[in-house]
């Protein structure tokens, strides 16, 4: 019973991931993109949950879905793209097929390499992926990357503010 539930859940989430990706890839209007993005990220979060990564699931939902998608939406609204501002893409289908042909070997290789890693998930304790165990690990082994990441986030914030400012000196020069 649980297995059937899990399998169908996985199928649903996988479908969500691919649907979101295809929406981004094929759609033309920014609103559709944002929608696809939202679906894809949320589905990935669901997959995390299925993988017993509860903390990662929360982080994904909070940061990616709640943060990045919202910021993207805000950006789309701020820019207020009109139809005319969108780039014309006359040969989009041709490009898509060509690129797909080019990428196929890479994807195949990637998949083949990945599938050599293991055949079945081992059983894990209930605390796996939980806040407690992850937090312990984070503050034992990952303190330095964690701190660096905080600096990176700060820098990115400052950078984004500076870049996003309306009036910039090089604008006047050019």
């Amino acid at each position: 019973m649980i297995e059937i539930l899990e399998t169908s859940l996985f199928a649903l989430l996988a479908l969500g991931v691919l649907t979101g990706g295809l929406m981004i890839l094929l759609a033309r209007r920014p609103a559709t993109h944002a929608m696809g993005f939202f679906i894809a990220l949320l589905s990935v979060a669901g997959l995390f949950a299925l993988l017993h990564q509860s903390f990662l699931f929360f982080a994904q939902v909070l940061v990616s879905v709640g943060g990045v998608v919202i910021v993207t939406l805000i950006m789309i609204l701020t820019v207020n793209l009109r139809e005319a501002d969108l780039p014309p893409e006359p040969h989009q289908t041709r490009w898509l097929i060509g690129a797909a042909v080019i990428i196929a070997p890479l994807s195949l290789l990637l998949y083949q390499t990945l599938t050599t890693l293991g055949d079945a998930f081992p059983p894990v304790s209930d605390t796996f992926g939980g806040t407690r165990s992850l937090g312990t690990l984070l503050f034992h082994d990952g303190v330095l990357p964690f701190e660096i990441l905080s600096v990176l986030l700060l820098t990115a914030m400052v950078g984004a503010i500076i870049i996003g400012k309306k009036e910039q000196s090089y604008d006047r020069e050019s």
Partner: peptide, 23 residues
């Protein structure tokens, strides 16, 4: 990006043929 990926894809193809068959 396309030219870069062409190279990557070529290498991938080679690896698929040379190694993929053996595994």
């Amino acid at each position: 990006a396309l030219t870069f990926l062409l190279g990557v894809s070529g290498i991938s193809l080679y690896l698929l043929i040379a190694i993929g068959g053996a595994s």
